[in-house]
Nucleic acid binder design. Structure first.
Ligand SMILES: [Zn+2]
Ligand SMILES: [Zn+2]
Ligand SMILES: [Zn+2]
Ligand SMILES: [Zn+2]
Lengths: 145, 145
DNA sequence: CGCATAAATGAGACTAGGTGTCAACACATG
DNA sequence: CATGTGTTGACACCTAGTCTCATTTATGCG
């Protein structure tokens, strides 16, 4: 299985492959980030790596998002949340109670997008789908009342 | 056909029905809002009704969102955009060029949501689907290069 | 109508989330 | 070693939004 350290190493490798330098602040940010499979905010990272500049952390996360290594998603109220990206196009099932994020790989909206294109004459450029759930373990600990 | 004034009147009526007072700032905010079928930001409303307090405008929009009369949606970068709600559950096709918002009533993701529920054991509580498009008129004026 | 009172307002402080600037620094390369 | 590009961090600044609290106002009741 993949450990958090492996994940951080992998991210570092990808950064390097992309022609980016592996600096101390980046290593720390990636290490902190890799330990949070449940999703994170940039401010949380800043608090976990206080000796690195806030702007640097934001720049690092933005870089990772642009490289497709991290996803920026949107909670129901619009608040942003980040998480490590799985490969390829996917959507997110976010638990409203514990905040865990499950990636949903199979995209079932292609048909809807085609319809929109046909009906409105518009060209679909992108889409965002977030599903807000009560995850299995949260259902177990706090059953439906 | 429905004019902007009709729209504002309708919103006022809905507010009143909900037990809310019809104050001058609310009337102005609704009037401004009704003139923007293409979607708006709260800051824009504030600029259009400068003699009403900023907090009041935010409170009014929040009220309308909670009453389901206005939708808060999310651009690709996460920036919020508001628009008048059509009836019932729907999604949004947002033009990246002109910012117009087309409501998409028929929801095609039910099947996907069912799958998520079955596969992960989680209970789907809500979802958000935004489609980013190049609308028909924007395609016409700035054709695909 | 007049009044009580709860709802609503507005000024302004505050927060989260994020970008832009710029001088200083770190490296790699010739 | 010189030079140039990538990166950093302090800090100012921005949008979006909430909170407080003293003051005002809409509305229902007598
Ligand atoms: Zn959960
Ligand atoms: Zn998709
Ligand atoms: Zn358009
Ligand atoms: Zn839907």
């Amino acid at each position: 299985m993949t450990t958090e350290t492996d994940t951080a190493e992998e991210l570092l490798r990808r950064l390097e492959d992309g022609g980016h330098r592996l600096t101390a602040p980046r290593r720390s940010a990636l290490a902190a980030l890799a330990q949070r499979p449940e999703g994170f905010t940039v401010e949380e990272l800043c608090r976990e790596v206080p000796w690195a500049g806030r702007a640097t952390i934001y720049r690092t996360v933005r870089l990772l998002v642009r490289m497709g290594l991290v996803c920026k998603l949107s909670m129901l109220d619009g608040k942003p949340l980040y998480n490590l990206a799985q490969a390829g196009h996917h959507h997110h099932a976010i638990c409203l109670t514990c905040g865990s994020v499950a990636d949903v790989s199979r995209c079932g909206v292609d048909h809807l997008l085609e319809n929109i294109q046909l009906l409105t004459g518009s060209q679909v450029m992108g889409h965002r789908l977030e599903v807000y759930v009560l995850c299995a373990s949260c259902r177990a600990t706090a059953p439906q009342r």
